[in-house]
Amino acid sequence: MKKNILGILGLLIAIFVITAVLNPKFVSAYNMQNLVKWSSLYSIMGVGVAFVIITGGIDLSIGSVIGLTASLLAFTLGKNWDPVVAICAMLGLSALIGLIHGLLITKAKLQPFVVTLCGLLIYRGMARWTTDNQSMGFKGHDQLNEIFSGKIPITDTFALPMPFVFLVVIAVAAALFLNRTIWGRYLLALGNNEEGARYSGIQTDNLKIAAYVICSLLAGISGLLFAFELDSVQPAQTGEFYELYAIAAAVLGGCSLRGGEGGILGVIIAAAVIRLIYNSINMLGISTHLEYAILGIVILAGVVADELLKRYTAKRAAQ
């Protein structure tokens, strides 16, 4: 069951080394710190969507959930809500969104693609409407800023960004859940063969709902982190299309879109690869207009290399 993460790890190291050789400033503490920060921010959503993809589903609403929680957080704080209440409300809201997705998919038997595509539209619209589509900031919430986008100094020049701390906690919990609990095993089983899992006495519906709740909740947490990282929220733009980064990271990291396969570490490495590519493009001064093309080519190359590697090892094992 364990998917090979060597391919994606090799890709990470290769791009890292190439960029470092071509531009030594790349390995400066400041740049590493930024790279860790952005990778963490995007990894968290990737981990969330990995759960849904493992069940054989998909969540297209991640970007909109990020936009909604970020917008509503700024909005409620602007209305002088207590920060703790506001943050709990955002987490509750995103979990509720996941719950609704899960119920619609399992009980009303709607397709995940349809449900979450509608979600994408609805939450974006709600964010824009409730906030009058105004850009908002987080003035006077230094403490929250410290928690969500602060830094923990490690050396004189390198400080650990808070999103990384969030990621570590979330990733460890997610990996434990997936690999060490019975529910993680059930999730993998139902992703492979839902009927088979049901016949074995697994409450497949409940687990699928849980996967959507985890996904939306992590999207909500990402929303909070992005909001404080950027210090401002545009209801129409914040988080737009981020679901694609999340899904790309999950798939590149070894989750099969057919379900039943995937690991947390691979997703995190893949999210880091995507951020690394963006960083390298800037570091090497490649035109930003080429970004998407390079991203697409590198990811495709990574997937192909991974496939070849798998065949090679399978052949080796056969001999």
Partner: peptide, 21 residues
């Protein structure tokens, strides 16, 4: 294949699936 087993999973994982809980 459809109802009795999770074909892609190992013998160990299939044999223990019902008794995990």
């Amino acid at each position: 294949k459809q109802h009795g087993l999770i074909l892609q999973m190992a013998v160990r994982e299939n044999a223990s699936l019902a008794s995990l809980s």
